[in-house]
Every structure is written in C-alpha cells, then in structure tokens.
C-alpha cells in the first residue's frame, strides 16, 4: 500500500467559517486558497520545507505491522489523511515540526526546544489530536477533535515551546 494524498478521503478543504451567507463563504474560500498557496512558499509555509515529504516518509516506513521491530501497529490511510490536513491547517509562519510514527499506529508531530521543553501531537485514525507538552516540571496535555482548523490550545503550546 502507498499513502495516497491526491485522493485523501478526509477533506477539510471546504472553507471553515461561522457565516452562512454567500459573501462569508466566498471570503473564507479565498482565505483558504491563499493559505494553501502560501504554504507552498519557502518563507511562509511548511510545504517547501519538506515537512509534507517527511510526513509521507514517516507513514510509508510504518505501513506494515512490526515496523519498529517490536510489533508496532501500521499507520492507516485515515491517520495519514488527518495528519496531512492538520499540517495544512497550521497558520503561516508556524515553526516546522518533526514527523514520526508511533508504535500504536498514530502519526506524531514534535516541536522541540529541549527534552524538558517540548510538545508532541499525535494524530489518530479517528481524527483525534492527542497532545502533551513538557515545560520543566509542568505539563499540559489533552485531546482535541480535528475539524479542519488547528486547535488554539495546540497553537498556543507551539508558541510557548518556541518562545525566546
């Protein structure tokens, strides 16, 4: 099996907006299109920085059971699709994460400053975002359902990890 991005079954490309009018939908669609365009730019987006390639490579390397030598679960197409959309949903200028696969078949994104100042977000096949951050002795953790936009608690933690 190869991971298929072009035919992703999980589609959040429809504009995310609270408004229902034609104008609101048009504006949201334009914003979405612009964000995807800028994701392709070196300066603003993750795409040109190879993170999407890393995501594909991480999923591919974990597509068969036992990929870690210990009996790990394979990464599913659904987990890959959700992870792809999550990455796409990150605001422009967000620091690039490192992408890995986890033994339970989830894909993980890590933002890292040091072993005690780090955030990891796991994406499940159901579209849940499980996260845990270490800041010295304190910890922030939880689960957010991914509905097409990067959840604010996770964005706040990314900023905190990378704060000067």
């Amino acid at each position: 099996m190869n991971f298929d991005t072009a035919n992703a079954r999980v589609d959040f490309r429809a504009p995310a907006t609270q408004g229902a009018s034609e104008v609101a939908l048009f504006v949201a669609a334009q914003l979405q299109a612009n964000r995807l365009h800028f994701q392709s730019s070196y300066t603003f987006g993750c795409k040109s920085r190879g993170v999407f390639d890393d995501l594909f490579a991480a999923a591919e390397s974990a597509r068969e059971a036992g990929w870690d030598g210990y009996g790990a679960e394979p990464v599913s197409q659904d987990a890959y699709d959700y992870a792809y959309r999550f990455l796409e949903s990150l605001p422009l200028g967000t620091p690039s994460p490192v992408v890995t696969a986890e033994p339970d078949g989830q894909l993980a994104f890590e933002w890292y400053a040091s072993p005690y100042r780090t955030l990891s977000v796991s994406v499940s096949r159901e579209g849940d975002l499980h996260y845990s951050a270490l800041f010295g002795p304190s910890n922030a953790r939880g689960t957010e359902v991914f509905l097409g936009e990067a959840p604010k608690p996770i964005l706040d933690l990314i900023r905190r990890v990378h704060a000067a």
Partner: peptide
C-alpha cells in the same frame, strides 16, 4: 488515556 501515555513517554525519554 493517550495524552497521559505521551506525558509519561516524554518523561521517560527525558
């Protein structure tokens, strides 16, 4: 609970 698992895994890794 997966977030708790991640928290523990982060502590062990550190």
């Amino acid at each position: 609970d997966k977030p708790k698992q991640k928290f523990i895994a982060q502590q062990l890794a550190a």
